[in-house]
């Protein structure tokens, strides 16, 4: 392309042609995602906004109702605030404990010389258990009357909480379940701990600092980005928290929506309610789709706020190389 340049006027034309071909090629490579993004992201997002101003029961055509759904959800819908409070609790307690526990396990894992591989494999295993299966399993293990956990606690004279059946213990029980599936954090923390430059430890050792300070001034600065990543993705996962809370409530309440008793999400007493469950409940159980769209949009705003936090703080995500 560069060897022949017959006439001065022809060069830009050839260049333009080349550029256009390159653009077309880029477009072709991106096309699956461009279609996917518009059809399965941009369009439904716009449609959610539209439906949030309508009443649509999926049988009769949608009717424009203005701000009514927004008014209803924001002013007359107590479950929304309960779900937000629960989410806040889960963010503060569950996400924090998961990060601390994962970090602790990671430091333990790199200290193990023999059996370290086995330790990591076994610790990783629960993360793979399908959430529905793991939750049903925990509902059984933590069953207040017959579960092995309370049986063992009783044997050693400890108090036996009601776990998934007790409003005060339902979220701690979910947290326990989340700690059991710590595998993902364990792996990234172990890897990043191994990446901490050895020379810095040497220097610290020569200065004679203690283990805490070594952690504070050497380990911590090196792993901060990974911890931040774990926190932000943890928060976003908590926004989406659905399966475990839903299944635990169904199994523990003994009501699965059969024989005329409808299951109320959030059992016991709404303490495990989260926004996605409200979307499902309003959207697919009572078919109050307008209200469901309002809740969806609130969820969207919160999730995006955290995403921007991630993008801003970790500009590395957008780097080229």
């Amino acid at each position: 392309m560069t060897t022949t340049a017959p006439a001065a006027a022809k060069v830009p034309a050839a260049l333009r042609r080349q550029r256009r071909r390159r653009n077309l090629r880029t477009l072709a490579f991106l096309s699956p995602w461009l279609i996917g993004f518009s059809v399965f992201f941009a369009y439904p997002l716009g449609a959610t906004v539209y439906y949030s101003f309508t009443r649509y029961d999926l049988i009769n055509p949608p009717v424009w109702v203005g701000m009514r759904n927004w008014n209803y959800v924001l002013n007359d819908y107590p479950p929304l605030w309960q779900a937000l409070r629960n989410t806040l609790w889960l963010v503060v307690v569950m996400v924090t404990l998961r990060v601390i526990f994962g970090l602790g396990l990671g430091m333990l894992a790199i200290r193990l010389k023999r059996g370290g591989g086995l330790f990591r494999t076994l610790s990783y295993l629960p993360y793979l258990a399908p959430p529905v299966a793991a939750t049903i399993g925990f509902a059984f293990l933590l069953n207040p009357g017959t579960g092995p956990v309370n049986h063992l606690l009783g044997n050693v004279g400890m108090p036996q909480p009601g776990w998934f059946n007790d409003p005060d213990w339902s979220k701690p029980a979910l947290t326990l379940l989340a700690l059991w599936g710590i595998g993902d954090l364990l792996v990234i923390f172990t890897a990043s701990l191994l990446d901490v430059p050895r020379e810095q430890y040497e220097a610290a050792e020569l200065d004679g600092v203690g283990p805490w300070q070594r952690f504070r001034y050497v380990t911590w600065p090196a792993i901060t980005p990974v911890v931040l990543f774990a926190v932000v993705t943890g928060v976003i996962q908590t926004m989406q928290y659905y399966t475990q809370a839903m299944v635990a409530g169904k199994v523990a309440s003994g009501i699965i929506g059969n024989s005329g008793q409808s299951f109320e999400p959030g059992y016991p007493q709404g303490t495990t309610l989260t926004l996605p469950q409200l979307v499902y409940e309003e959207g697919f159980s009572t078919f109050n789709t307008g209200a469901a769209c309002v809740i969806s949009l609130l969820l969207f705003v919160i999730a995006m706020a955290f995403t921007f936090l991630l993008l801003r703080r970790r500009s590395g995500l957008l780097d080229d190389d």
Partner: peptide, 10 residues
């Protein structure tokens, strides 16, 4: 990062 529930109705 988008929760799947956000766009589920449409």
């Amino acid at each position: 990062m988008l929760p799947p529930q956000v766009i589920i109705i449409p």
